Simulated assay, not measured.
Amino acid sequence: MKPKVVILCGGKGTRLREETEYKPKPLVTVGRMPILWHIMKHYAHYGFNDFVLCLGYKGDHIKEFFLNYKLRRWDLQLNLKHGTKFFTQDEEEEVEDWNIIFAETGLETNTGGRIKKIEKYIDGDYFFLTYGDGLSDVNIKELEQFFLQQSKIGVMTGVKPQSKYGEIAVDTNGTIIEFKEKPLLNNYINGGFCVFDRKIFNYMDENCILEEEVLKQLVNEQQLVLYKYNGFWKCMDTYKDYKELNQMWQNGNSPWKVY
């Protein structure tokens, strides 16, 4: 049995208000498709196509997107007696073979609480977890194998984010000797793309915060391991990030598009 992929989709995306005023953040588009779709395509590329979406803010929009998936994407022929027939733009294009559980986890629920609420849907020994706003080209199969080798409760993918500012180096006289435009920072941060043993549910209640309470407890018990990843990773946190990701897509420079 392959592990399920749990995606946190319930946040309000307040720092991306230009796009999230009328839709949930995971439905903000990169190209013509939501960032959530890109994330799911990534996991499905490696053979993981059983998803649990933890819904919250405007979660009904996410349900409606997938319920009307064919209607949005393909040409349609309607016969009032016999029903509908869909035509793809590309004859080789197929409908994704995805199983999706849409779990209503509450409007104000914290991240850990959202995960605790979907415990009943996790029927394997471990599961994947990520956020509904981060793109990467991390190899999911290699991440899974790393987790299986650790014998720990959790593995978190650590990434080095790009600085928002240029970095200047000067000599003793104050003369600039080097300038780096938005270099990668030295420390790793939580990039999502986690793998957890189902034992993690024992550390949770429906009010907990994953990043504050649960992960810190795992750290204290030496049950959390970092999977260091130096490849592509970018989070759509602000409108500037949204513009940058869409510019990358338009330019054909989309490192996350491994599918």
Rank of each mutant, 00 (worst) to 15 (best):
M248W: 11
W37K: 03
K63P: 02
V5H: 10
Y242C: 07
I115P: 02
F196Y: 15
K141A: 07
S163H: 08
G11M: 02
N173Y: 10
T88V: 13
W74Y: 14
Y188S: 07
I209G: 00
F87Q: 11
K41F: 00
L129V: 08
E94Y: 00
P3Y: 05
F232T: 06
F147N: 01
Y57P: 01
L55F: 07
K234L: 13
K180W: 08
M236H: 03
K70W: 00
V155R: 01
W98V: 06
N49H: 11
I100C: 08
V6A: 11
K164Y: 12
K234P: 00
M248V: 06
L107M: 13
K152S: 12
V52Y: 02
L55Q: 06
N139F: 05
N68W: 01
K23E: 12
T111L: 14
G59Q: 04
K23N: 00
E144W: 03
N79F: 10
V170D: 02
P161N: 08
N49K: 09
T172N: 10
T157Y: 01
M204I: 10
K70V: 04
C54R: 02
L226Y: 06
L53D: 05
Y22R: 11
K216M: 07
D60T: 08
T105Y: 00
K12E: 11
K117E: 05
Q223K: 14
N246W: 08
W233Q: 04
W249F: 15
E96K: 11
I101D: 11
H45A: 05
V138K: 05
G112E: 05
T84K: 14
S163Y: 09
F48R: 01
N49Q: 04
E108Y: 12
N99E: 14
V214E: 02
H61Q: 06
L224K: 01
W233N: 04
K141T: 13
E93W: 03
P26M: 05
Y43N: 07
E212Y: 13
F87R: 12
D60H: 09
R32A: 09
H45G: 10
G47R: 03
V95R: 05
F86R: 03
V159S: 03
I118D: 01
C9S: 08
F86N: 04
M1N: 13
E104K: 04
F102S: 07
V155L: 03
N99H: 13
L215R: 03
I118N: 00
L210Y: 14
G31Q: 06
T84S: 12
S136V: 05
T238L: 08
F65G: 01
E96S: 10
P3F: 07
V258Q: 04
R114W: 00
K199Y: 08
E21I: 09
K199M: 10
Y259D: 11
G59T: 06
S163D: 15
